[in-house]
Every structure is written in structure tokens, then in C-alpha cells.
Write a protein that binds this DNA or RNA. Structure first.
Length: 846
DNA sequence: TACATACAC
DNA sequence: GATGGTGTATGTA
């Protein structure tokens, strides 16, 4: 994949795009086989798409100022921005190669040693629209396919044809509830994107297309941000290659070179061999099997990963302060090491990687740059077993950043990507080019976040996560959808127990309990309760009773809705596929070094720090925690007995049987002891698949005793506790305090309320109408009437509306009962039709 | 505080 | 036939 000039952004906006790219083009979640849908369509399924006027030609009402001076060679060191976006320029091979190439950072170790001929430059993912060769039915939209394709859909290295893979995934998925849910989400996102684009168009129309003033505002923001640039640090991100898979290969060399996946129902990792077939993490097991019939599945073994991880971290620690981001990834400051050892960053990284490989047998890739954000991205560049170095100059940083597809920016996920693409932003460099437009929608787009990415800024301090910064502990379990209340309770008990176990292990208690449930239609719902300002708890009993109350309340709520006719009467039970509990508003019990007896339930947990500090407090605690218990168990001791035995049972010798075994347990009657016990056992048996608690905190958090570990240095450990890093906020990300949706914007206040995006259908419609004559072009005239491929009904309206309609067929109830109203321009109307359906679906009949 | 989303791994 | 678990951040009400 040779680095190629941006094909996407530039082309789409160049003004000489393939003919039919109207200012606003339409596509749809359900792709119809229409001749007009040519390869010129962008991936977004948004009904409307903003297409900026060409930079040079003042086609429309506005002549846009040329954004940037023609970029001539490297920008001077102290050059202030804005500067031209490299993307718009030549094939910037040269610019990119500059990182690591010519500077002092490079040194001999600089060889980007990659076993894979990886491009030195970000390659813009091909924007080939999904084109189905044969299928006659409705074709899924690009965005939906991407959604289904999962996170690694983009990466594809030496994979088999991407379209083919997508097609297989689509075929395997299309009839599942999961698929329907994704489709629904995609349709909702489409509406959201359309509304945003409409708003942008309206704002542009108001200004006659002139955004000079906005550009000036952004330039000010850029100048401010530029002042924060720090180039004196050397940060490396080390990321293990196919970590779980590699760990297993190390244990069992016969796996080397074979296609296997780690995990079952959903893959957590696929070996490189398996990836060639299109298998990737987060993919459903049965789908992966379709892609690679001989795929072998290996069970997760967290103790293995954890120990491998510790070995790696111990080595990294020899090079500088580290900040583990997960079991297989860590940030490390090489600043001091390089100075001390008189080596270049590239050499240091080489050494580090070589040492890891030699001592652990695991290969890792690395990214080196002046900050965490760039290093993070760079670490992926030459995977596996490679590294990428970015020089500590503004030019190198910006050059590197500018060429990245927007999706590669840490923090930009599927949703943000779609939103940005709809507005014309495909690469980071586009952020600058379209800064004026982006300013108009700065809030919904997180402008300052994007500008930081554009400038190649990121965190420059590395600090180890601190116990006190942990925000929550949670346990959740997925199961085959069911609606048996007794079993919900049973599951809840087990979850409560597991959570209590984690709390005890890590020594936290908390004040807020949150119940999470996911319906069979993949709707996630959470209900929380904070017991009191001074009530901290961590015992299974409280977790259970409070969780049960929340669950009961939710079920009662449903009954009411049925009574009010808001939910179809025919519905039977609340049908769920997941239940979880989360404890938040934590208190670090370890810090208070207390031990005490839990007054509560069965007294089984002799060491609950949650219990409290002293006798006196213990009493308080007792009083505080008593009420909820009484309420929950007032019906009698039977419950308590029942719960106690189940919660504190001693069956601990479960092996992971895997998901498929769940079918073996099908209690037929509520309350049947044996069956419940069986279920209970099963639930336990499936738990081995996941770490008992959060991977990061449990395995690499600073509460882990690393002494005695290879390469561990006691002194430095102590230092870690004593030395307060300047930036004490440990963030998993690189841009503390900001995200795409962040409101905090340098130099720009939040948009006035009236300008905020509203999803109220009426509002959406208004905007559409307002803008219609200026930038908005209604759906391209369709060639022939749109027709539902299922019921044959004809539509005069948008594809979005049709899409929603088609989706309703997958709902196993009478198709169009909620019939989608499709008028002539009604993406807006379809909002109404889509939403109620999901609500209703939350409660299914089965 | 409560809830929903988005994101990472 | 069928798509995970743990955690953080943040917007909005």
C-alpha cells in the first residue's frame, strides 16, 4: 500500500469529483441497487452530505479564502500555524519520511524494522463504496458493513479482499438480532448525521458561504494550542503484537503459523495467519468460522496473559516511567534514558524491543515521538515487530498527523468518523482545510480536540495510574436471552457475589450501585442508585438487594407501560441477554488501612474494608446498610437463606465450558432448587473466560506487588509513590479533558442553545426546509420508485425512511403495524417512526 | 446524581 | 442459531 495522495478528501472536495456528487448526495442504510449509485459515493450513509465548495473556485456564493499558503518544503521550526495541510499537497512521502529519517532521533537504531513492508505513511483507506456484484436484495450500506466489520475493518493488511470479507460477514450476520440492532443504530446515526449536515448548511447559508471570520477564530485557537507544544520529551508506546495469540504460541509452539483465534463467542484476538482470512478481534466466532473454516479456537487464559504482561512491563520499567494502558500496551518515557545512555530514541526503542523479545519471546511494536498521542498512532504503523519514530519538530509532528485518516486519531471511533466524513473530513489535514465550517459546528464535532490532533499534540507526561483514581468496579454477564424472573435473580446473585469478590480483592467500597441490563434487542439500559452521602458498601448482599430493587422497579415500570398501553399487551416477559452491576463513587479502603468485620450478611466476608474503621463506625455502617436489606428481605428469611447459600457457595472449580453449553441448562420451573443450582453452576462456569476484575487495574495497577519480579527495582517503585508527577491526572488517553464531544473549547464558547442540534423531528424538518433552497438538494431523483424489497410497497420518500421500513420487517411482529410514514421529504418523519419501535422492542414477547 | 453514548482494548 | 467484559470520559437533564 504505497502512500498515496489523499484520494478521499481531496477528490471529494476538489470540485472535479465524479459528476454526480451533488452538494448533498443521498445514500441509504439499505442500499438499493440503483444504477446511479456509483463509485463516487462516499461511505457515509447519510442522507445528506455536505460537500464543501472547491477551495479555489468560488463556485458558490462564496469565495473561500485559500486556506493555506502553498506549502513549500518543511515549515520552519518556529513557524506558527496555520500551515498548509500536507494532505492537500503532493504525495508527501518525503515529508513523512522525515520522521526518524534525518534527525538526531534516528541514529542507527532507526531502521524501521518491520517484517511487514509497512508503509511509512498513513494510507487513506479506500473509500470504495460497497458494491455488490450479484446479490439482488437490499444491500447494506457501507457504514453498516463497516459497523459489522468491526474495529479492524480498516486495517486489513495482507488480508484477502476486503469486499469479499465484508460480504461474507454480511451474509453470516444478516438474519441475526444483532444485525437488526446494528441496522437500527446505523439508521439512527444517519438521522443524526443528516441533521448535523443540515444545520451546517443552514449556518453556511446564513453567511453566504463565507466563513472567513470563523477561520480567523480557529486560527486564534490554533495559535493558542501551538503555544502548548512540548517537544522535549521522548515518549514511546509499546504494543505487543497479537498479544493473547502470541502468549499462546509461546506456550504451545505448534500453534505458530496456524490460523487460530483466542476467545469463543466473540474473538478477542486472531493469529496473524487467521487475519489473512479476515478474522479479527471483536468478531463473532461463528462469523470467523465462515471466513476461515479451519479456524481453531483457544480459550482465554488470563493468568497467562497477566504473567506475560508483567514480564514485559518489568522490562519497560528499566527504561523509564511507565504507564500501562492495558495488559499488552504501555507508555514509557525515554527522555532520561536517552540522555543517560546517550542513545537516540530509535536506538532506545530498538533495545527495548529486542530485550522484550529475547527475554519473553514476545514481539512488540513501538512508536516514538514527543508525545503520547503520536506515539500511540506510530506504534501501529509498522506492526508487527517494527517501530516508527517521529522527530521532535513541529513539522514532523504535523506532517505525520496530517496524513492520518481521521479514524486513526485515538478517540475517534466509528460514530465520530461518520460524522466527520459527512462534513468532508477524511484525514486530519482536512480539519484545517475545513476549519471554518467546523467552527460552525464546533460543539458537536469537538473542534479543539480535532485541532490538537491536527497539530500533532498530545500528553507529554507519563505517570502510573494511581489507585485513588479508579472510578468504578463492575461485573456483567451475557447469556442467551430469557425472561424468567427467578433466573434473573439468580444471575444477579452471582454477579453480586463476583462484584463483592472483586471489591474485596482490590479493597474498594463505594456508594453508588448501577444495574445494567441489555434486552434481547441489544438495548442497553442502566439504573443507578446512590445509597447515601456517607454510606459505603462492598458486600454482596447489598449489591444484590439494591440491584434487585432496581431490577424490580424496571419490571414494574414495564407492567405500568403495558397497563397504559404503551407496550403491546401480548408481550410476556422482560427479555434480557445481559445483567451487570457496577459500583462507583469509590472509596479506597486500602488507603485507610482498616480491617473490620462486615456486619452484614452471613458475616462471610471477614475482611471487608468496606465494613469500616472502628467499632464505632462499624455500628454506623450497620445502621446504614440495614435499611436496604430489611426492605429487600422483609418477605422473610427464606430469601436470605437462599441467597446466602447461593452467593457464598463454594463451587470454585469451574472450568470454562464455553457459551454453547448454556443450552444445556434450561430450568423449566422457577424456584426449582436443582435447576437453579445448575444454572448457578453454569454461570460460574462461564466466568473463567474473563479476568476477575479490570485488566488494567488488576494486573498492572499499582496495587500489584511487583517485588521479586524480574527487572523490578524496589527503589523506583517507592519513588513512584512519593514523586508526584506534575500532571497527576492519569488518563487512558492522550488528550486529557477533551474528547470529540467535549464542550471545552479554547477560545470559543459553547454555541448558543438555539443553535444546538436538536433531534426533535420537528426541528429537523424545519432546518431541512429552511436550507432546502440553498445548499440542500433533496434526494436525487430516484430512478424508478423506491420499493420495499420485502413487501413490495412503493415509497415516494427517502431511502432512510425506506430503510427504517425494511428494518421493521425483521421485527418478528407484524411488519408495518407502526408503519413508517413516508412523505416526500421525510427523513424527519422517519424519526418518529423509528423511535417508538425500539422502545417497544425493549420488551419482547418470546 | 442519573442516564446514555462513545471509545479503547 | 449465533456477536464480550471492564473501564473512563462526557453531555444533558
Amino acid at each position: 500500500m504505497a502512500p498515496s495522495p489523499s484520494t478521499s478528501a481531496a477528490d471529494l472536495l476538489a470540485g472535479s469529483p465524479p459528476p454526480p456528487v451533488p452538494r448533498l448526495a443521498s445514500t441509504s442504510p439499505v442500499r438499493l441497487s440503483r444504477a446511479s449509485q456509483s463509485a463516487s459515493l462516499p461511505p457515509s450513509t447519510s442522507k445528506f452530505r455536505y460537500s464543501a465548495p472547491p477551495e479555489d473556485a468560488s463556485t458558490t456564493s462564496v469565495q473561500r479564502p485559500k486556506p493555506s499558503p502553498p506549502r513549500s518544503g518543511p515549515v520552519k521550526t518556529s513557524t506558527l500555524l496555520p500551515r498548509p495541510s500536507p494532505r492537500a499537497q503532493e504525495p508527501q512521502q518525503a515529508g513523512v519520511s522525515s520522521y526518524g529519517q534525518s534527525s538526531a532521533w534516528k541514529g542507527k537504531g532507526k531502521e524501521v524494522d518491520s517484517s511487514v513492508a509497512a508503509p511509512a505513511v498513513a494510507t487513506v483507506p479506500q473509500k470504495r463504496p460497497f458494491t455488490s456484484t450479484k446479490s439482488t436484495g437490499p444491500q447494506p450500506a457501507e457504514s453498516l458493513l463497516r459497523r459489522l466489520g468491526g474495529p479492524s475493518d480498516q486495517k486489513a493488511g495482507l488480508m484477502r479482499d476486503k469486499e469479499e470479507v465484508r460480504q461474507i460477514i454480511y451474509e453470516a450476520s444478516k438474519n441475526s438480532k444483532y444485525f437488526i440492532a446494528q441496522q437500527e443504530k446505523d439508521a439512527q446515526l444517519t438521522l443524526r448525521v443528516d441533521a448535523l449536515v443540515a444545520r451546517l448548511n443552514r449556518l453556511l447559508a446564513e453567511r453566504g458561504g463565507n466563513v472567513k471570520a470563523e477561520q480567523a477564530r480557529v486560527d486564534e485557537m490554533i495559535a493558542e494550542l501551538e503555544k502548548t507544544r512540548v517537544l522535549t520529551e521522548t515518549i514511546v508506546v509499546v504494543d505487543a503484537d497479537a498479544f493473547y495469540a502470541s502468549c499462546h504460541q509461546r506456550e504451545d509452539p505448534s500453534l505458530v503459523g496456524t490460523a487460530f483465534a483466542v476467545g469463543g463467542g466473540v474473538l478477542t484476538t486472531a493469529s496473524y495467519e487467521a487475519r489473512k482470512y479476515g478474522c479479527s478481534s471483536a468478531m463473532a466466532g461463528f462469523v470467523a468460522k465462515k471466513l476461515c473454516p479451519h479456524l481453531k479456537f483457544i480459550s482465554l487464559d488470563f493468568s497467562l496473559y497477566s504473567s506475560c504482561s508483567k514480564s514485559i512491563m518489568a522490562i519497560l520499567r528499566q527504561y523509564g516511567d511507565i504507564s500501562p494502558a492495558s495488559l499488552d500496551e504501555a507508555y514509557c518515557s525515554l527522555t532520561d534514558y536517552c540522555r543517560r545512555e546517550k542513545v537516540t530514541p530509535a536506538e532506545a526503542a530498538e533495545r527495548m524491543r529486542a530485550q522484550v523479545l529475547a527475554e519473553t519471546g514476545l514481539s512488540v511494536s513501538a512508536g516514538v515521538s514527543p508525545n503520547a498521542m503520536l506515539s500511540k498512532v506510530a506504534a501501529d504503523k509498522n506492526k508487527p515487530n517494527g517501530q516508527c519514530v517521529i522527530d521532535p519538530t513541529p513539522e514532523a509532528c504535523m506532517e505525520f498527523a496530517g496524513g492520518l485518516p481521521i479514524r486513526n486519531v485515538p478517540g475517534i471511533g466509528r460514530v465520530s468518523e461518520r460524522i466527520l466524513q459527512a462534513v468532508g473530513v477524511h484525514t486530519v489535514a482536512d480539519v484545517y482545510r475545513l476549519r471554518g465550517e467546523l467552527f460552525l459546528i464546533r460543539n458537536e464535532v469537538g473542534l479543539s480536540f480535532l485541532l490538537r490532533a491536527y497539530l500533532g499534540l498530545g500528553r507529554t507526561t507519563i505517570s502510573h495510574a494511581d489507585r485513588s483514581q479508579r472510578k468504578g468496579i463492575s461485573v456483567e454477564r451475557t447469556f442467551h436471552s430469557e425472561s424468567n424472573i427467578a433466573r434473573f435473580y439468580k444471575r444477579l446473585e452471582n454477579i453480586a457475589e463476583a462484584l463483592a469478590g472483586d471489591c474485596e480483592k482490590s479493597q474498594y467500597s463505594g456508594r453508588t450501585i448501577t444495574l445494567k441490563i441489555k434486552t434481547h434487542t441489544y438495548q442497553s439500559i442502566s439504573r443507578a442508585k446512590t445509597l447515601g452521602s456517607a454510606i459505603y458498601f462492598s458486600d454482596a448482599r447489598t449489591f444484590y438487594t439494591e440491584g434487585k430493587k432496581l431490577l424490580d422497579k424496571e419490571m414494574a415500570n414495564r407492567r405500568q407501560m403495558i397497563a397504559r398501553g404503551q407496550i403491546p399487551k401480548g408481550g410476556k416477559d422482560f427479555c434480557l441477554r445481559l445483567i451487570g452491576l457496577r459500583l462507583s463513587n469509590l472509596r479506597d479502603d486500602k488507603a485507610t488501612k482498616d480491617t473490620g468485620k462486615l456486619d452484614g450478611w452471613a458475616g462471610t466476608r471477614s475482611k471487608s474494608k468496606a465494613a469500616t474503621n472502628s467499632q464505632g463506625k462499624s455500628k454506623v455502617k450497620k445502621e446504614e446498610s440495614a435499611p436496604p436489606d430489611e426492605l429487600a428481605f422483609e418477605s422473610g428469611d427464606l430469601d436470605e437463606e437462599h441467597n446466602r447459600s447461593d452467593l457464598f457457595g463454594d463451587e470454585d472449580d469451574h472450568h470454562s465450558l464455553g457459551f454453547d453449553d448454556e443450552d444445556d441448562v434450561k430450568p423449566t420451573l422457577d424456584g426449582d432448587g436443582d435447576e437453579l443450582q445448575q444454572l448457578n453452576n453454569f454461570i460460574r462456569s462461564s466466568q473463567g473466560e474473563h479476568p476477575s476484575s479490570d485488566q488494567l487495574w488488576a494486573a498492572v495497577g499499582d496495587d500489584v506487588d511487583l517485588s521479586g519480579m524480574e527487572g523490578f527495582d524496589e527503589d523506583s517503585a517507592d519513588e513512584e509513590d512519593d514523586i508526584k508527577p506534575i500532571d497527576t491526572t492519569h488518563k487512558p488517553f492522550w488528550t486529557a479533558g477533551e474528547s470529540l464531544n467535549s464542550k471545552k473549547q479554547t477560545g470559543a464558547g459553547p454555541a448558543p442553545m438555539k443553535d444546538r442540534l436538536s433531534f426533535e423531528s420537528k426541528r429537523v424538518k424545519e432546518e431541512m426546509d429552511e436550507d432546502a433552497d440553498f445548499f440542500i438538494v433533496e434526494d436525487e431523483p430516484v430512478v424508478g420508485p423506491l420499493k420495499c424489497p420485502v413487501c413490495e410497497k412503493s415509497f415516494a420518500g427517502s431511502e432512510v425512511a425506506l430503510s427504517a421500513h425494511v428494518a421493521s420487517h425483521f421485527d418478528d411482529e407484524e411488519p408495518v403495524k407502526k408503519k413508517v410514514k413516508v412523505g416526500s421529504s421525510s427523513s424527519a418523519k422517519s424519526v418518529k417512526s423509528v423511535k417508538p419501535r425500539s422502545l417497544k422492542d425493549m420488551f419482547a414477547r418470546r
